[in-house]
Design a protein around this nucleic acid. Sequence first.
DNA 1: CAGACTACCTAGAGTCTCTAGGTACGGGCG
DNA 2: CGCCCGTACCTAGAGACTCTAGGTAGTCTG
Lengths: 113, 113
Amino acid sequence: MSEPQTAGPQLSRGEFGLLILGLLGRREMYGYEIVAELRRSSEGAIDLPEGTVYPALRRLERDGLIGGHWVEVAGGAPRRRYYRLTTQGEKALALGREDWLRFKSAADAVLGS
Amino acid sequence: MSEPQTAGPQLSRGEFGLLILGLLGRREMYGYEIVAELRRSSEGAIDLPEGTVYPALRRLERDGLIGGHWVEVAGGAPRRRYYRLTTQGEKALALGREDWLRFKSAADAVLGS
DNA sequence: CAGACTACCTAGAGTCTCTAGGTACGGGCG
DNA sequence: CGCCCGTACCTAGAGACTCTAGGTAGTCTG
């Protein structure tokens, strides 16, 4: 699976992963923040539970698309694991955006919206 | 699932089911035809294997969203199972379209496209 | 006769999402 | 003080879906 065209998994496989990459394309963020930011910047339409986001972050890191590092926070607050896109992650985001655009107009064509 | 808002599964769960409902909203179709029509009307962007479509049809029928009936074809050709939307399926399609529109603009907001 | 095409089907592996918790610390409130 | 809320991380397990890789069966074509 490497051809960016019609073959392979069809989006909706790792779609939320793409959304996370999209956020991290803006700036470094940590998991808990991603949950809130996803909700905020989608105006509540996307509200992923932590149990979805944390495993997704681990997968993305395992696959080399993002890199994480721990940051201690003053005042005894819980430490945060900040993530940023790797070079590979930036490529994946660019490809993912294309896939998304393709899928979007395809679905619109099918759904007639 | 009943609240049309933020709760519950986030689309991308049963997304292809929605696409199938979208096709069947136009006219009656059978499985093999759906595979081809999905490919055609999405201009190749969506190309689901039969192993995805047939189980999806069974689920949709099991859940009462579509109804199927066998049609014999002249000339010894394989019989076809035609499906159409039930009343419940039409409702689900309408709700699904709304979900899709919401998800689409949310994802666009996140991805910046 | 081999191969392609129509049409249906399944089992099993793999992946993802979500529920439902748990850990730990600090602050506010009665 | 006890309790709950908020921050921030985590996991196990169930459930759902997608895909691969087949299989069946008949027809048609070279």
